[in-house]
Simulated scan of single mutants.
Amino acid sequence: MSEHATPDLTHLATEIKRWGQELGFAHIGIGTADNHPHAQRLNEWLQKGYHGEMGYMSAREALRADANALHEGTVRVISARMDYLAGGEDANTVLQSPQKAYISRYALGRDYHKLIRKRLSQLAQRIEQQAGGRHRAFVDSAPVLERGYAEQAGLGWIGKNSMLINSRAGSWFFLGEIYTSLPLPIDAPQETSHCGSCRACLDDCPTQAIVAPYQVDARRCISYLTIELHGPIPTELRSAMGNRVFGCDDCQLVCPWNKFAQPSTEEDFVPRHQLDNSELLSLFQWTETQFLEQTAGSAIRRIGYPRWLRNLAVGLGNAPHDPAILKALQQRRTEVEEMVAEHIDWAIAQQQQKAALIGSDR
């Protein structure tokens, strides 16, 4: 099509969805670039301080509230869903094995950012080739209210756990967006909230981070504590973390809608290095070189080696008493920086306390 031809936007929208499926996306929707209701909710969330140390959330709030400010000329947002569950050890089985390390299911394979950004960029290029316009792809890489846009584009509804939920696919999926200057026909939101009276996610959250329906206090959320927080994990929350060392999936695992979750066929999402079923002690004994080797191309690497040890130390403190664990903690104690050492000290105290209880029972 020449750059001066007027595209058939209805046909183009249909083609975009077909091209998206060819690129591995399970659902493509098109919505308006106006996100005022969701921007207002973000502002209220920030005003409550629920973002904790994630200063970038408030620093770039204006760009989240105005798509045109982020990408000039944007009138539509194309939202894309890609499912990521790709096998591995059963999540609940790992959570119920306190000597094992639980890693959020999304992080078991390769980092999703590169894969999805590449696919979305290919889709954006194809749209531009066919119809012109200005387009920009995003995958959790810029201030975009992705769940809000996805809800507006008919990909699902935002549940009480603040996750986007789809009635045919649950919530085990990634989202990505293309900002476009083309006034494509809009997909009506297909689903209002279907959470009803269910409060499974609120009741099951280990640290009670879901402080009210649709409101998550990140400062209590295990995903925030293990990934976003750079300093010490609050002492009062450590025991509730159990063996969760990178992220947390509890609010998804108990969501009834996830019985409809779709398995992914993407090889990049297949668990690597047995991280779906590894012992806490084994991971804690990795050297920094091993950590860098085993997490190459993984979202886990972003937290760095010290925070990896910090999180594992908490998990080891919560594990049943084991002389091998206590020995490993004591040996590592002198090798680490102060922040990590403080968590190791806590874990040692927890292990010693359990040992004392065992001894008193004899």
Rank of each mutant, 00 (worst) to 15 (best):
N318E: 09
G297W: 05
L202V: 06
A200P: 00
E338A: 15
T74M: 04
I227K: 06
E236I: 09
E191T: 08
N166C: 05
I210K: 05
E288D: 10
L9H: 02
S223P: 08
T32V: 12
Y149S: 03
L316D: 07
A299G: 14
A169F: 10
P37C: 13
E266T: 13
F284C: 12
C255V: 12
F260L: 03
A86L: 07
A341Y: 03
L357T: 13
L326M: 07
I344D: 04
K354P: 01
I158V: 12
P37H: 11
K327R: 14
F173T: 13
K259R: 15
G87Q: 05
P98Y: 08
T93E: 11
W157S: 02
A188N: 11
N161K: 00
L120F: 03
Y50H: 12
Q99W: 15
G159W: 04
D83R: 02
V340W: 08
T74S: 09
K17E: 01
L202K: 02
Y50E: 06
R147H: 05
R147Q: 13
E151W: 02
S193A: 11
E61R: 13
Q285T: 12
R126H: 08
E44W: 07
Q47N: 14
Q190Y: 03
L95H: 06
G176V: 05
L182E: 04
S104K: 05
M163Q: 15
D203P: 02
